[in-house]
Write a protein that binds this DNA or RNA. Structure first.
Ligand SMILES: [Mn+2]
Ligand SMILES: [Mn+2]
Ligand SMILES: [Zn+2]
Ligand SMILES: [Zn+2]
Lengths: 125, 125
DNA sequence: AATATTGTTGCGACTATGTTGCAATAGTAC
DNA sequence: GTACTATTGCAACATAGTCGCAACAATATT
Protein backbone atom coordinates (compact mmCIF):
# COMPACT_ATOMS: atom_id res chain seq x y z
CA UNK A 1 0.00 0.00 0.00
CA UNK A 2 1.50 3.23 -1.07
CA UNK A 3 0.23 6.13 1.01
CA UNK A 4 -1.43 9.07 -0.64
CA UNK A 5 -1.36 12.63 0.55
CA UNK A 6 -4.86 13.84 1.28
CA UNK A 7 -6.47 16.87 2.88
CA UNK A 8 -7.88 14.70 5.69
CA UNK A 9 -4.46 13.42 6.65
CA UNK A 10 -2.92 16.86 6.54
CA UNK A 11 -5.66 18.28 8.69
CA UNK A 12 -5.33 15.61 11.34
CA UNK A 13 -1.57 15.85 11.30
CA UNK A 14 -1.83 19.59 11.81
CA UNK A 15 -4.08 19.08 14.81
CA UNK A 16 -1.69 16.60 16.36
CA UNK A 17 1.17 19.00 15.79
CA UNK A 18 -0.69 21.88 17.40
CA UNK A 19 -1.32 19.90 20.56
CA UNK A 20 0.93 19.91 23.61
CA UNK A 21 -0.68 16.72 24.87
CA UNK A 22 -1.68 13.40 23.49
CA UNK A 23 -5.03 13.66 21.79
CA UNK A 24 -8.07 11.44 21.75
CA UNK A 25 -10.21 10.70 18.73
CA UNK A 26 -12.96 12.60 20.45
CA UNK A 27 -10.91 15.74 20.78
CA UNK A 28 -9.81 15.59 17.18
CA UNK A 29 -13.36 15.09 16.00
CA UNK A 30 -14.40 18.17 17.95
CA UNK A 31 -12.03 20.28 15.90
CA UNK A 32 -13.25 18.93 12.62
CA UNK A 33 -16.69 18.72 11.14
CA UNK A 34 -16.08 17.52 7.62
CA UNK A 35 -14.24 14.26 8.16
CA UNK A 36 -16.02 11.07 8.94
CA UNK A 37 -15.52 9.26 12.24
CA UNK A 38 -14.23 6.12 10.60
CA UNK A 39 -11.83 8.09 8.46
CA UNK A 40 -10.29 9.73 11.48
CA UNK A 41 -9.78 6.34 13.07
CA UNK A 42 -8.25 4.96 9.90
CA UNK A 43 -5.87 7.86 9.53
CA UNK A 44 -4.75 7.64 13.15
CA UNK A 45 -4.11 3.93 12.72
CA UNK A 46 -2.07 4.67 9.63
CA UNK A 47 0.01 7.23 11.46
CA UNK A 48 0.79 4.63 14.09
CA UNK A 49 1.69 2.01 11.52
CA UNK A 50 3.94 4.46 9.74
CA UNK A 51 5.76 5.59 12.86
CA UNK A 52 4.39 9.10 12.67
CA UNK A 53 2.40 8.80 15.88
CA UNK A 54 2.10 6.47 18.80
CA UNK A 55 -0.92 5.26 20.70
CA UNK A 56 -1.45 5.45 24.43
CA UNK A 57 -4.12 3.35 26.11
CA UNK A 58 -5.75 5.13 29.01
CA UNK A 59 -7.14 3.57 32.15
CA UNK A 60 -10.62 3.44 30.69
CA UNK A 61 -9.35 1.76 27.52
CA UNK A 62 -9.61 4.92 25.46
CA UNK A 63 -6.92 5.64 22.92
CA UNK A 64 -4.79 8.76 22.80
CA UNK A 65 -2.34 9.73 20.09
CA UNK A 66 0.86 11.70 20.16
CA UNK A 67 3.32 12.49 17.43
CA UNK A 68 6.53 10.54 17.56
CA UNK A 69 9.75 12.38 18.09
CA UNK A 70 12.46 10.14 16.75
CA UNK A 71 10.61 7.18 15.33
CA UNK A 72 10.59 5.63 11.95
CA UNK A 73 8.34 2.86 10.71
CA UNK A 74 11.03 0.32 11.50
CA UNK A 75 12.75 1.72 14.55
CA UNK A 76 10.50 2.90 17.34
CA UNK A 77 11.43 4.48 20.62
CA UNK A 78 8.38 4.40 22.80
CA UNK A 79 9.77 3.23 26.04
CA UNK A 80 8.66 6.30 27.84
CA UNK A 81 5.93 6.75 30.39
CA UNK A 82 2.76 8.75 30.03
CA UNK A 83 0.79 10.60 32.60
CA UNK A 84 -2.93 11.19 32.70
CA UNK A 85 -4.42 13.60 35.17
CA UNK A 86 -7.57 12.33 36.82
CA UNK A 87 -8.93 15.85 37.02
CA UNK A 88 -8.15 17.58 33.75
CA UNK A 89 -7.77 14.27 31.89
CA UNK A 90 -4.84 15.48 29.85
CA UNK A 91 -2.35 12.87 28.71
CA UNK A 92 1.26 13.83 28.38
CA UNK A 93 4.42 12.08 27.32
CA UNK A 94 7.28 12.00 29.77
CA UNK A 95 10.67 12.45 28.23
CA UNK A 96 12.85 9.91 29.91
CA UNK A 97 12.97 6.48 28.34
CA UNK A 98 12.62 3.70 30.85
CA UNK A 99 14.76 0.64 30.83
CA UNK A 100 12.92 -2.61 30.29
CA UNK A 101 14.61 -5.88 30.97
CA UNK A 102 12.80 -9.07 30.12
CA UNK A 103 13.18 -12.67 31.25
CA UNK A 104 15.00 -15.02 28.93
CA UNK A 105 13.15 -15.85 25.74
CA UNK A 106 10.79 -12.91 25.93
CA UNK A 107 10.65 -10.48 23.02
CA UNK A 108 9.25 -6.98 23.28
CA UNK A 109 7.16 -5.50 20.52
CA UNK A 110 5.56 -2.57 22.23
CA UNK A 111 5.26 -0.84 25.56
CA UNK A 112 2.36 1.08 27.03
CA UNK A 113 3.01 2.73 30.35
CA UNK A 114 0.54 5.11 31.91
CA UNK A 115 0.60 6.79 35.28
CA UNK A 116 -2.66 8.16 36.57
CA UNK A 117 -2.81 10.84 39.19
CA UNK A 118 -2.92 14.61 39.47
CA UNK A 119 -0.83 16.93 37.39
CA UNK A 120 1.06 19.86 38.84
CA UNK A 121 -1.76 22.27 37.99
CA UNK A 122 -4.58 20.18 39.40
CA UNK A 123 -2.81 18.88 42.49
CA UNK A 124 -2.23 22.37 43.86
CA UNK A 125 -5.76 23.62 43.26
CA UNK B 1 -20.98 -0.27 52.19
CA UNK B 2 -20.25 -3.31 54.22
CA UNK B 3 -19.28 -6.24 52.04
CA UNK B 4 -21.15 -9.50 52.23
CA UNK B 5 -19.79 -12.92 51.61
CA UNK B 6 -21.61 -14.57 48.74
CA UNK B 7 -21.23 -17.69 46.64
CA UNK B 8 -20.60 -15.59 43.53
CA UNK B 9 -17.70 -13.78 45.09
CA UNK B 10 -16.18 -16.97 46.44
CA UNK B 11 -16.44 -18.62 43.06
CA UNK B 12 -14.78 -15.79 41.23
CA UNK B 13 -12.10 -15.49 43.87
CA UNK B 14 -11.39 -19.19 43.53
CA UNK B 15 -11.01 -18.84 39.78
CA UNK B 16 -8.59 -15.95 40.16
CA UNK B 17 -6.61 -17.96 42.68
CA UNK B 18 -6.42 -20.97 40.40
CA UNK B 19 -4.97 -18.91 37.58
CA UNK B 20 -1.28 -18.42 36.93
CA UNK B 21 -1.98 -15.45 34.74
CA UNK B 22 -4.13 -12.36 34.85
CA UNK B 23 -7.64 -13.20 33.79
CA UNK B 24 -10.15 -11.44 31.59
CA UNK B 25 -13.84 -11.19 32.24
CA UNK B 26 -14.34 -13.39 29.22
CA UNK B 27 -12.21 -16.17 30.59
CA UNK B 28 -13.94 -16.07 33.93
CA UNK B 29 -17.35 -16.16 32.30
CA UNK B 30 -16.29 -19.24 30.36
CA UNK B 31 -15.72 -21.10 33.58
CA UNK B 32 -19.05 -20.13 35.05
CA UNK B 33 -22.55 -20.48 33.75
CA UNK B 34 -24.70 -19.42 36.65
CA UNK B 35 -23.51 -15.92 37.32
CA UNK B 36 -24.70 -12.97 35.35
CA UNK B 37 -22.31 -10.94 33.21
CA UNK B 38 -22.98 -7.76 35.10
CA UNK B 39 -22.46 -9.47 38.42
CA UNK B 40 -19.04 -10.70 37.39
CA UNK B 41 -18.07 -7.18 36.39
CA UNK B 42 -19.36 -5.78 39.65
CA UNK B 43 -17.51 -8.32 41.72
CA UNK B 44 -14.26 -7.74 39.88
CA UNK B 45 -14.62 -4.02 40.41
CA UNK B 46 -15.20 -4.63 44.10
CA UNK B 47 -12.10 -6.77 44.35
CA UNK B 48 -10.10 -3.93 42.85
CA UNK B 49 -11.61 -1.36 45.18
CA UNK B 50 -10.87 -3.57 48.15
CA UNK B 51 -7.28 -4.24 47.21
CA UNK B 52 -7.90 -7.92 46.60
CA UNK B 53 -7.13 -7.72 42.90
CA UNK B 54 -5.67 -5.26 40.45
CA UNK B 55 -6.68 -4.38 36.95
CA UNK B 56 -4.47 -4.43 33.88
CA UNK B 57 -5.51 -2.64 30.72
CA UNK B 58 -4.41 -4.46 27.60
CA UNK B 59 -3.43 -2.91 24.32
CA UNK B 60 -6.93 -3.35 22.94
CA UNK B 61 -8.45 -1.75 26.02
CA UNK B 62 -9.63 -5.03 27.49
CA UNK B 63 -9.37 -5.52 31.23
CA UNK B 64 -7.48 -8.28 32.96
CA UNK B 65 -7.47 -9.05 36.65
CA UNK B 66 -4.86 -10.54 38.92
CA UNK B 67 -4.89 -11.12 42.62
CA UNK B 68 -2.78 -8.74 44.63
CA UNK B 69 0.13 -10.08 46.56
CA UNK B 70 0.82 -7.56 49.28
CA UNK B 71 -1.90 -5.00 48.87
CA UNK B 72 -4.47 -3.67 51.25
CA UNK B 73 -7.32 -1.34 50.45
CA UNK B 74 -5.24 1.59 51.58
CA UNK B 75 -1.72 0.67 50.60
CA UNK B 76 -1.24 -0.65 47.11
CA UNK B 77 1.92 -1.84 45.46
CA UNK B 78 1.24 -2.07 41.78
CA UNK B 79 4.30 -0.51 40.32
CA UNK B 80 5.17 -3.61 38.42
CA UNK B 81 5.07 -4.31 34.73
CA UNK B 82 2.87 -6.76 32.92
CA UNK B 83 3.50 -8.72 29.81
CA UNK B 84 1.01 -9.82 27.21
CA UNK B 85 1.99 -12.27 24.53
CA UNK B 86 0.73 -11.34 21.10
CA UNK B 87 0.39 -15.00 20.21
CA UNK B 88 -1.08 -16.82 23.20
CA UNK B 89 -2.54 -13.60 24.63
CA UNK B 90 -1.71 -14.50 28.20
CA UNK B 91 -1.08 -11.63 30.58
CA UNK B 92 1.39 -12.10 33.37
CA UNK B 93 2.66 -10.00 36.22
CA UNK B 94 6.36 -9.35 36.42
CA UNK B 95 7.76 -9.37 39.90
CA UNK B 96 10.11 -6.47 40.05
CA UNK B 97 8.64 -3.15 41.04
CA UNK B 98 9.72 -0.32 38.83
CA UNK B 99 10.81 3.00 40.15
CA UNK B 100 8.66 5.91 39.11
CA UNK B 101 9.87 9.43 39.59
CA UNK B 102 7.56 12.28 38.78
CA UNK B 103 8.11 15.95 38.02
CA UNK B 104 7.45 18.40 40.80
CA UNK B 105 3.82 18.78 41.78
CA UNK B 106 2.68 15.54 40.18
CA UNK B 107 0.91 12.97 42.33
CA UNK B 108 0.59 9.33 41.37
CA UNK B 109 -2.60 7.41 42.01
CA UNK B 110 -2.13 4.37 39.85
CA UNK B 111 0.18 2.82 37.32
CA UNK B 112 -0.59 0.58 34.37
CA UNK B 113 2.40 -0.79 32.52
CA UNK B 114 2.07 -3.39 29.83
CA UNK B 115 4.67 -4.82 27.54
CA UNK B 116 3.45 -6.57 24.43
CA UNK B 117 5.53 -9.10 22.58
CA UNK B 118 6.18 -12.80 22.53
CA UNK B 119 6.55 -14.94 25.60
CA UNK B 120 9.31 -17.49 26.00
CA UNK B 121 7.07 -20.30 24.84
CA UNK B 122 5.73 -18.57 21.76
CA UNK B 123 8.94 -16.86 20.66
CA UNK B 124 10.77 -20.15 20.30
CA UNK B 125 8.01 -21.90 18.36
C1' DA C 1 -4.56 15.92 -21.40
C1' DA C 2 -7.05 11.77 -21.00
C1' DT C 3 -7.14 7.31 -18.91
C1' DA C 4 -6.19 3.64 -15.78
C1' DT C 5 -5.04 2.16 -11.30
C1' DT C 6 -5.82 1.76 -6.66
C1' DG C 7 -5.63 4.15 -2.19
C1' DT C 8 -9.08 6.90 0.42
C1' DT C 9 -13.47 8.41 2.06
C1' DG C 10 -18.38 8.50 3.76
C1' DC C 11 -21.94 5.91 5.19
C1' DG C 12 -24.24 2.66 7.82
C1' DA C 13 -24.18 -1.39 10.13
C1' DC C 14 -21.87 -3.96 13.32
C1' DT C 15 -18.85 -5.72 17.33
C1' DA C 16 -16.97 -5.72 21.71
C1' DT C 17 -16.60 -4.42 26.31
C1' DG C 18 -18.34 -2.56 30.19
C1' DT C 19 -22.11 0.06 33.00
C1' DT C 20 -26.62 1.18 35.11
C1' DG C 21 -31.60 1.30 36.85
C1' DC C 22 -34.70 -1.44 39.01
C1' DA C 23 -37.10 -5.03 41.28
C1' DA C 24 -36.32 -9.46 43.45
C1' DT C 25 -33.28 -12.05 46.44
C1' DA C 26 -30.42 -13.16 50.27
C1' DG C 27 -26.56 -12.07 53.80
C1' DT C 28 -26.03 -10.19 58.40
C1' DA C 29 -27.08 -8.14 62.82
C1' DC C 30 -30.32 -7.82 66.41
C1' DG D 1 -37.65 -14.53 63.11
C1' DT D 2 -37.45 -9.67 61.63
C1' DA D 3 -35.41 -5.68 59.78
C1' DC D 4 -32.00 -3.75 57.12
C1' DT D 5 -29.53 -3.23 53.07
C1' DA D 6 -25.94 -5.41 50.04
C1' DT D 7 -26.15 -8.31 46.13
C1' DT D 8 -28.01 -10.31 42.06
C1' DG D 9 -30.32 -11.02 37.41
C1' DC D 10 -32.21 -8.90 33.74
C1' DA D 11 -32.57 -5.84 30.11
C1' DA D 12 -31.41 -1.69 28.36
C1' DC D 13 -27.89 1.44 27.56
C1' DA D 14 -23.29 3.63 26.61
C1' DT D 15 -19.00 4.10 24.45
C1' DA D 16 -15.23 3.17 21.47
C1' DG D 17 -13.65 1.33 17.61
C1' DT D 18 -14.05 -1.64 13.18
C1' DC D 19 -15.62 -3.23 8.60
C1' DG D 20 -17.84 -3.91 3.93
C1' DC D 21 -18.96 -1.49 0.12
C1' DA D 22 -19.63 1.86 -3.42
C1' DA D 23 -18.26 6.52 -4.74
C1' DC D 24 -14.44 9.45 -5.07
C1' DA D 25 -9.82 11.26 -5.90
C1' DA D 26 -4.53 11.08 -5.77
C1' DT D 27 -1.01 9.31 -8.61
C1' DA D 28 1.07 6.94 -12.42
C1' DT D 29 0.81 5.79 -17.33
C1' DT D 30 -0.11 6.63 -21.88
MN1 LIG E 1 4.46 9.28 24.23
MN1 LIG F 1 0.14 -7.41 38.28
ZN1 LIG G 1 -4.62 18.02 35.58
ZN1 LIG H 1 2.80 -16.69 24.38
Amino acid sequence: MKRRKTPSKEKILAILKSQDYATSHEKIANQIDDINRATIYRILNQFCEDGIAHRIIAENGKQFFALCKDCEAEEHHHNHLHFQCNTCEKVECFESEINISLPNGYVIENFNGLINGFCNLCSSA
